Computed example of a mutant assay.
Amino acid sequence: MNLASRPFAEMKEESHFQEGDEVLFMPGSAFAVEAIELNEKSQLYTIKLKLCDDDEIQKGFHKKNIFKGDRDTVRELFNHMGTSTLVHECSNLDQLYNHMIKLFSFDKLIEFDYLKAMGSIYFKNKNFQLSIHYFERCLALSQTIVHSEEKDIAELYCSIAESHYRLRNYNQTINFYHKALNLNSLPSSKVIMPHSYLGFSYLTRADWSNVDDISSAKYHLQQVLYIDLENEILGDGKIIDIYQALGDINEYQNDPNSALDYYTQALELCESNQWTDDSNEFKEKIQAIKSHITESEQCKT
């Protein structure tokens, strides 16, 4: 098992109880409770445990510092909230926040991290209305914090924008992603997704009837490819979607040669991944464009 935990071993062959499984764990091993389930028939509880690795064990020691009022530890815990299953007392963000705000009254950074963590958890749980609510509260609070990092503000804009994208609020998506990009504070690895979401938001909003939106979609999707060429961030599936969108855009703009180029690149990726259905779709598109180009050339002659 690939787990950086305390050593353990199966002891079934050495056990006096051959009818059951037996595992010996080294002293100091730690477990997290993942679920407690009641068997309605037997009225017995089944407790499912997870063996924690050394990193999780270390995070578990946050509990000792939290109740001593360790401010930096609390801020770090907010950032990890939702991923750590060790600190039962802190599994509820509101409970943790209410406790810490008594120790650090009017601490805006504690409140900032709390609101951001709440937004992240609601986003993870696909409650995008509430994720927007908490991210916007966090954004408003950041305006009152002296020397707020522009990078933090840009990331909040992105979080709000992506929440709107999930709700198909494309106008808001476009608005907040532009605010994020205008700050020029995000690294390339975090700029690529705003361009991607902007491209598809413009394209969806345009519905093939708004020329300006289609041109904007083309620009942002091309930016995605430029950034990915240098950083290799996206997977093949995402790149194929972008090639297809750019092929469709160029075909709409009556540029069959560029469309053919994008469809061909998409086909090559599909074939390298053995995605047969997608390959057939692009083959049909390529054949249709080639036929159109041939007919156009014949008409000219």
Rank of each mutant, 00 (worst) to 15 (best):
L203V: 01
H80N: 12
N2G: 09
K218E: 15
C270E: 01
K179C: 05
D255L: 09
E150I: 05
F25A: 01
E34T: 13
K41P: 01
G82V: 09
K116C: 10
V87N: 15
D54V: 04
Y157F: 14
I233K: 03
E136F: 07
N98S: 11
D53L: 04
S142M: 07
S216I: 00
M11H: 09
M193F: 13
Y177T: 05
D72W: 02
N175Q: 12
S15A: 12
H88Q: 15
Q298H: 11
G20N: 15
L51A: 07
K68D: 06
K283H: 05
E56A: 15
D53K: 04
D54L: 14
S142H: 06
D72R: 10
Y97C: 10
N127H: 03
Y226C: 08
I101T: 14
Y262S: 02
R205Y: 10
D21Q: 08
M81G: 10
Y226Q: 13
I239F: 00
I132A: 09
N280A: 05
Y202E: 03
S131K: 04
H147N: 15
S5M: 01
K41W: 02
V87Q: 12
Y114H: 12
I47C: 00
M100I: 14
S185H: 11
I153A: 11
G199D: 05
L38A: 08
A217K: 02
L77V: 06
Q298S: 10
L156R: 05
Y243K: 13
K290G: 00
D21P: 04
S258E: 15
F61S: 14
I249M: 03
H292K: 14
A259S: 11
F25R: 00
A32G: 15
K50L: 11
L267M: 08
N175A: 05
N2W: 08
R205W: 07
L246V: 03
F78V: 06
E56G: 11
R71L: 14
T276C: 00
V211F: 08
C270D: 01
K285N: 04
K64N: 10
D70T: 09
C138V: 11
S216F: 09
Q244I: 03
V23F: 13
I66W: 07
Q18G: 09
E149L: 06
L229N: 15
Q58S: 15
K68A: 10
Q143C: 07
N273G: 01
